[in-house]
Amino acid sequence: MLRLPVFGSKSPTSIEELVMAIAEPGARIVAGGTDLLPNLKHKLHAPTTLVSLDRVAELQRITWDREAGLLRIGAGVTLTQLAEDAEVSKNFSSLSKAAGLVASPLIRNMATIGGNVNLDTRCRYVNQSEFWRSAIGGCLKSEGDVCHVVPKGRSCVAAMSSDCVPVLISLGAHLVQVGPEGRREVAMADYYHSDGIAHTHCQPGEFTAEICVPIAKTPARAAYGKWTVRKSIDFPLISVAMHFALDRDAADATITEARICLGVLAARPKLLKVDALVGLRLNDPTTAELVGELCFKQGKPLDNVPYEAEYRRKMLRVFASRALRDLLA
């Protein structure tokens, strides 16, 4: 039995009430609660108030803003809703696939896209019970002052383990953040820090209201590859998201723009330098080889999640080429 620490709760019903509720010191947002509640049960945080998003109807919509050329996903949309949305799956197959691969069906019924974007970083030494952690004296992210992943390391390297984040970055998405000073937009590629303890640019009193994905103007193909220990429930061991803008919609089209993003390396998802891919044909065997090579060269996993870092690095090549194969089908 795991007990939650004592806290109060608030259930605002509008964005205005929500802004006021989280402005109070010690307040923290709970949406699906599937990541926050286990962390609270493990005594990793001690909020005084939890502010629940589940009654803010404005945050629970998926809208197609054709004028601005954006798909706007409310932060309170559950991953099941996102994965089962026929329009999203038609236009953004990689996002739909990633949302449908998160954890397990029941967790996806509860967990929200806003929570997935703001998912706390994870590490094999921190996402453990208080008792387990006490045996090693904690770490930088919990009670201790040492890092068990990087000996003598002074900054936390817990991994961003969200499935949707690398995909959204590869699609060039941005976030709408709402706070006491109003709304602001921030590109998802710039939203994350390399510090595993405070890994986002979310200001105090601010929350993510919307995730905006640009609707591609040219033909494009995108894919997502995730490696897990089991077929369900697990966080990724490595993840690869790729997006290619093409000159026409065919398997042998020429790549005009490429974006590949790797997850689960450290606190910040890594957007690779892939200029070498521009001008190549999508179904060319050398393209597949080059994609695998770029992922292997630039992706350097750490021993922060299960399985050895070296093994995971080799699997980057495998899962990158498998994702590319999906995209040709």
């Binding site: 709760s9 259930s11 629940s52 029941l106």
Partner: peptide, 18 residues
């Protein structure tokens, strides 16, 4: 697992206030 408004969810990760 219980159903909340017909949707199956994990009651151990659902706050009673929700």
């Amino acid at each position: 697992t219980v159903q909340l408004d017909g949707v199956a969810r994990l009651s151990c990760l659902t706050l009673a206030v929700q």
